[in-house]
Amino acid sequence: MIAPGQASDVVIDVHGLTKSFGGRTVVRDLSLQVKRGTIYGFLGPNGSGKTTTIRMLCGLLTPDQGTGTCLGYDIRTETEKIKRQIGYMTQRFSLYQDLSVRENLEFVARIYGLPQPAKAASDMIEHIGLVGREEQIAGLLSGGWKQRLALGACTLPGPQLLLLDEPTAGVDPKARREFWNEIHALAARGLTALVSTHYMDEAERCHEIAYIAYGELLAHGTVDEVVRQSNLTTFSVTGEGLVQLAAELEKKPGIDSVAPFGASLHVSGRDAAALEAAIAAHRDHTGLNWKQIDASLEDVFIGLMAQAKDNVT
């Protein structure tokens, strides 16, 4: 038995979380385990329940059903203790737009009762590379700088767990890369981070991922595990008339997803034999070039989404 708040292997451990709003179930029977020091990617389309799940983990929403702990504290009854040890970065910039960089950081430092708020803020300004901009009004910063400031603010109190809700939305590639480097540096020091994202390349930067759609957790594990578990066979087609081909293939049984990737079309199915049978008639078309490839994470997710949609409707 590990005392609450003490170092244990599992930082997030929740079972059967369910939450509905106005009769619509947004998260359904979701279970999740995240180990200490892991960067855990939380993937899924818009409206899939990622934000709702994160809010339940940090006590901002009360689950309708389900139980669990976050940092060893009960997510229903000990939310005040959880709040002291997490850093939550909201999807929308939620620091004070009319305070300066320094004022925002000092405010956070004082709320958490850090001994030297001014010094803590200065150190963080230096750490996140905002020296020279500390007196700038936060609302006037560019997207990338806002994101750095927000990350700085939620790491300032020295949390054990970061909950980052789409932190890189609307941020340029260079800032995204720097952001991920920072997350890895923090994880190396023992911090755990749950990061929700839309970007597949970011999923591959995570130690583990979970994929959620329509409120249900559809797959989880390392990237390789998720791809392997999907048992997906994928063909890449290049050539003429791909738009028409896609329309024809989509209706056929045995084909789970058809998706254009640049100049090629990815055709995937869980049952390799059924997939081969479905495409057999098109394989000899002149002008089309078929090639079996390893399924990418994106193929897997598009397949999972199609599958989940079938289950829901």
Binding site: C58, I86, T90, S94, L95, Y96, V108, I111, A153
Partner: peptide, 13 residues
């Protein structure tokens, strides 16, 4: 309305 309440509620206050 400005969205700052979400951060504030996630803080120990």
């Amino acid at each position: 309305e400005r969205g700052t309440m979400e951060s504030l509620l996630a803080m120990p206050i």
